[in-house]
Design a protein around this nucleic acid. Structure first.
Lengths: 192, 192
DNA sequence: ATGAATTCTTGCCATTTGGCAAGCCGGGAA
DNA sequence: TTCCCGGCTTGCCAAATGGCAAGAATTCAT
């Protein structure tokens, strides 16, 4: 039943399989149908989710009202708006299901109780946060040092499944370019 | 003596002034002379620093060997290479003093002991990490949605002191542009 | 003080990316 | 089937940014 969640808790070696099973016991099953919002702008994020099936998109609006994709979530990832969740502030981001999704969730209160009761889970939680931070730093560096085409091929390698679930205009804004430019980059790339 | 450190620990309201004084007691004074490295690429970050005086620069090298500034540190900020420090992995980044610096530090072991002994400090530590993550997300969004000139004026507003301590080419790579472009942007901007 | 090295600016031109509008394509609704 | 609509591509041109090299300004070491 919860074997993927347990496996995820165990991978970092911060949690033993036995403890992982106990911790997993506190997670509850969640389904998010395609196009439904896991989190809406203006609300306080109250859900921590381990995504087991499906894909999600994180997006915000810029000053001109354009939809900007700030992230994607794929299976075996934690879906969480860190700032809103931990600071209990209104989210500036939306999280929406690109496909029908399934996963295991905790509320803010449940997570805190579990952090308190299970030091290993607390360590694991820090690990998740540190990893998210590191991943974002890597992405920032690629925004600075790489061309749009390099970022495109990078995403194609690291997360090919996204291309089967998200429209190209969402991927374009995630890469920091327009859909027009992405279309041209794909054209050039396909020649090679 | 440690009043700035104590004030910093107290600002989030996660630590009471009394506890803050106790926690601060475990920090040791550190000086980093101008141009010295607080952290060198390839080494494992072992120091957590609250910067009290001076400015530092964080940088890495891209695939072509170009120096890319990934961050700056100003007084009253935590200086820390998160990934290397918490994961005990070799740093891909360098942290160098732009000016003579002074601050209060902890080693990795000292920080963990303090996290264990002082739950409030653990909460505070998470708060620091969450804030760093949120700040980086904001910067990422500005890379995607803003022009180079907007990013320049943004930095000028949020961190004007950096312009007095870092060479423009470092600021340029931090903004994701070349020093040539930054020079032209400054020229245009000064006309207004 | 002197010379060397670095930083910053500028001109010229190339490349990348964007804005807009038209058209094409494919899927869903009736 | 037929229509419609959103998603994707493409052409044309403009704007933003980069690459390179020269020179001016500044800093640094001796």
């Amino acid at each position: 039943m919860k074997e993927n969640l347990i496996a995820f808790l165990t991978t970092s070696s911060l949690v033993t399989p036995e403890k992982a099973a106990e911790i997993a016991g506190h997670f509850t099953f969640r389904e998010i149908p395609k196009n439904a919002f896991f989190l809406e702008e203006g609300k306080i994020a109250n859900n921590y989710l381990f995504l087991e099936k499906g894909f999600m998109r994180v997006f915000a609006y810029d000053m001109d009202g354009n939809d900007v994709t700030t992230g994607f979530a794929a299976p075996r990832q934690v879906v969480l708006e860190v700032s809103s969740f931990f600071n209990r502030t209104r989210s500036q981001e939306n999280i929406q299901a690109l496909t029908d999704c399934e996963g295991w969730g905790l509320t803010y209160d449940e997570l805190n109780q579990l952090f308190h009761a299970r030091p290993e889970f607390r360590e694991f939680g820090r690990h998740v946060l540190v990893n998210a931070f590191t991943t974002l730093k890597t992405r920032m560096l690629s925004m600075i040092t790489e061309t749009a085409e390099q970022r495109y091929t990078g995403l194609l390698n690291t997360n090919p499944a996204i291309f089967q679930h998200a429209p190209l205009k969402n991927i374009a804004s995630y890469l920091g370019i327009t859909d027009t430019s992405l279309s041209r980059i794909r054209k050039e790339f396909s020649k090679k």
